[in-house]
């Protein structure tokens, strides 16, 4: 394509519907500056921050997540998309807090001890954030104590653990067993993920669910939050 054809779209000239559709495309292509511009335009048009988040960013990331799940997009493209979303989120975050936008839930997430792989974990964090969750990211190489300290301090709804190595995945059980010992296990929904894991493994170690990818993690987290709300409603 000719370079003089670049930027033949002026985002501010699009109506809301076309702008959001274009932002879906731009997220898909990982265009951070364009996403930031789109977010600002929608805010100028007096969209509330929560609507920008859910309709433009989460809507776009859902497409990215589905295509990642379906083997159409791979890690590099998803990381670029997530990076573009992060640009939009940076604008929205303070506004969301200031406007008291609904929060879906809170999650503490980290890669287990001995493991430095955080690609999947970062994706989950970003997609969850995009879906309206508050994320506390503990990074890599987390000991039982690191997880315990964080959940005691943060009081999350969910705990997410990630591992990419077969030598580190059993550590998830160490964490869960410690939570059981301390009588804290049932206070949290525990989601696990990582390349060598599977459903059966997650059951065997006592996690609540295995999430095969970031899109599934978001759906699973939402499901557990809905269940929690229903239970609370039933108990009241």
């Amino acid at each position: 394509m000719m370079s003089d054809q670049e930027d033949d779209i002026v985002l501010s000239e699009l109506n809301d519907e076309d702008l959001v559709a274009q932002m879906f495309d731009d997220l898909y292509d990982g265009l951070k500056e364009e996403i930031e511009e789109g977010v600002n335009i929608l805010l100028e048009r007096e969209w509330v921050p929560y609507r920008v988040l859910t309709e433009a960013l989460v809507g776009g990331m859902t497409i990215v997540g589905n295509d990642f799940r379906d083997g159409i997009l791979f890690v590099p493209e998803v990381l670029l998309a997530a990076n573009a979303m992060k640009g939009g989120m940076a604008i929205l975050k303070p506004l969301l807090i200031a406007t008291g936008a609904p929060r879906v839930g809170k999650m503490v997430i980290g890669t287990v001890k001995g493991d430095i792989h955080d690609i999947g974990k970062n994706l989950v964090g970003m997609m969850m954030e995009g879906a309206g969750f508050e994320i506390v990211d503990l990074g890599i190489n987390n000991s039982v104590d690191a997880y315990l300290d964080a959940i005691e301090k943060e009081k999350p709804d969910l705990l997410g653990m990630s591992a990419l190595l077969t030598t580190t995945m059993p550590y998830m059980k160490v964490v869960i067993d410690t939570l059981i010992e301390k009588g804290m296990r049932d206070d949290y929904t525990i989601l696990v993920g990582g390349a060598p894991l599977n459903e059966e493994f997650s059951k065997a170690i006592g996690a609540d669910a295995y999430c095969r990818d970031a899109a599934v993690a978001v759906e699973t987290a939402k499901m557990f939050m809905a269940r929690k709300h229903n239970q609370m409603a039933a108990n009241n």
Binding site: E6, I9, D25, D29, D67
Partner: peptide
């Protein structure tokens, strides 16, 4: 699998 999209933005 592929996604059919009409990319309105012409970029190099």
């Amino acid at each position: 699998p592929t996604r059919k999209r009409q990319n309105r933005r012409h970029r190099t």
